[in-house]
Design a protein around this nucleic acid. Structure first.
Lengths: 241, 241
DNA sequence: CGCCTAGTTGAGGTAAGTCAATTCACGTGG
DNA sequence: CCACGTGAATTGACTTACCTCAACTAGGCG
């Protein structure tokens, strides 16, 4: 019973007691499904519930008035969807499933109430939110100061490391349902240039992204090229005991 | 006694009881001063304490191995310094004061202990952290999808709105100690281009940044040009009562 | 007085964007 | 079964936003 995605995720941050686990269990109200391509919620909407992604892929993004899109992050199983929206009581971004997805719903009211019963839970959530923020910061550095090829390499490595943490990837590579258009909007590039950069990395013998699979040809050379340091992703042993 | 920067900030998020206020008071251990230009802490260092900025300006940044710098955000009075570092137990970024600054120190251990005494405090901190994250997300959109002039305009407006919240600015403008080099590293531009863009905005009659003062010449035209929507900054009335 | 930092401007280079055409896989309907 | 449309990937030709290098000015300070 303890092996829901949420328990696994938070357990990595804070050692949870039986009492805390049972509070956590009661948070999972409903299991829901959403189809690929239809927004879970939209920027400007007020956030009533957050979700934990159980299976499938999604992405969070913002749309500019001229129609341009910036993807903030991709979500993989175990990740929160819309946690910030719940806390700020308004969504500053939209979330769209890439594949069909399964999620478990967490109501805002339940979450806040759970905090008062088990403060350590609040600490765990705060930890998870901080890790999410650290990822966004790394994306900022990526887009702000790296060129297109380094950016792509860094992105593919980060995604691989995150997938490896949930058993969906390794140093060899991983299955990846992202299109070049999605990559473009995540990396602040044009789709055409994404294509050229992928070819460049492939020709250089570093990574190959073909037909839904990312293959790391020379992992070490790639990490050096991209200046990839996975520290910010590490789920160390529980820090609160 | 209730009017420390931290109390003001958190009180905007969560209505705090007398008991909670007194816990909060005890958090403020020491008042410290740091001089301009010397790092408060450095990336890779383990975070033992966070600070609340009482006066002066600072910025958080990351350095790449080739010496390039990406500034993640600027901190003004009332902002946290290194909150994420404390929670992740390791700093993923550095912080440097721009001016001489005064801060109050909050020890990590005290903060976590306070959570267990007053869970609503944890909620308030989580709120504050979410707002910080929302700002970083907006910076990501800014750098990823806006051109240099829009980026600059958006940045100056955001800073103005934040300063207005703490009584240090208005729609007319504000005092601003940032150099063009700092702006460049925050916006992912070169210092030379920052100079040109500032001239362009000045010539267009939208903003003037001269000798440490930002003056909004035509506030409405500027917000439209930059697509600036301050929702993500708004400190609405306390949501938890 | 001379050095240093911040700002300013010009000339020329380049990384990445735009526009456009082609291919391929897939699904859908006549 | 084939015609057709649609979305994704690919590649070429051309444009451009921003960068780099470089020179010069002005203020602050030992």
């Amino acid at each position: 019973m303890e092996n829901t995605p949420l328990v696994r995720k938070l357990g990595a941050f804070v050692a949870l007691s039986d009492a805390e686990l049972s509070v956590l269990q009661r948070l999972h109200k409903r299991r829901r499904n959403f189809v690929a391509g239809r927004d879970l919620f939209h920027q400007g909407q007020s956030g009533q519930a957050a979700y934990i992604l159980a299976s499938g892929w999604a992405f969070s993004y913002k749309i500019l008035p001229d129609g341009q899109r910036q993807i903030v992050d991709f979500q993989i199983p175990g990740d929160f969807l819309g946690l910030r929206s719940v806390l700020l009581h308004i969504s500053d971004h939209s979330i769209e499933p890439i594949t069909n997805i399964e999620v478990t719903e967490v109501l805002a009211s339940d979450l806040l109430e759970a905090f008062s019963q088990t403060p350590r839970l609040a600490t765990a959530i705060l930890w998870a939110a901080s890790r999410d923020e650290a990822m966004v910061v790394e994306h900022l550095v990526n887009i702000g100061r790296r060129n297109a090829a380094e950016r792509m390499a860094h992105f593919l490595l980060e995604l691989g490391a995150r997938l490896a943490l949930v058993g969906m990837g390794s140093r060899a590579g991983y299955a990846c349902p992202l299109t070049q258009y999605l990559l473009a909007d995540a990396l602040g590039l044009s789709a055409v240039h994404v294509n050229r950069v992928l070819r460049q990395l492939r020709d250089a013998g570093m990574v190959t992204f073909r037909e839904g699979f990312v293959t790391f040809d020379t992992y070490n050379r790639l990490t050096e090229f991209a200046d990839f340091d996975p520290t910010y992703l590490d789920q160390v042993n529980p820090l609160l005991r």
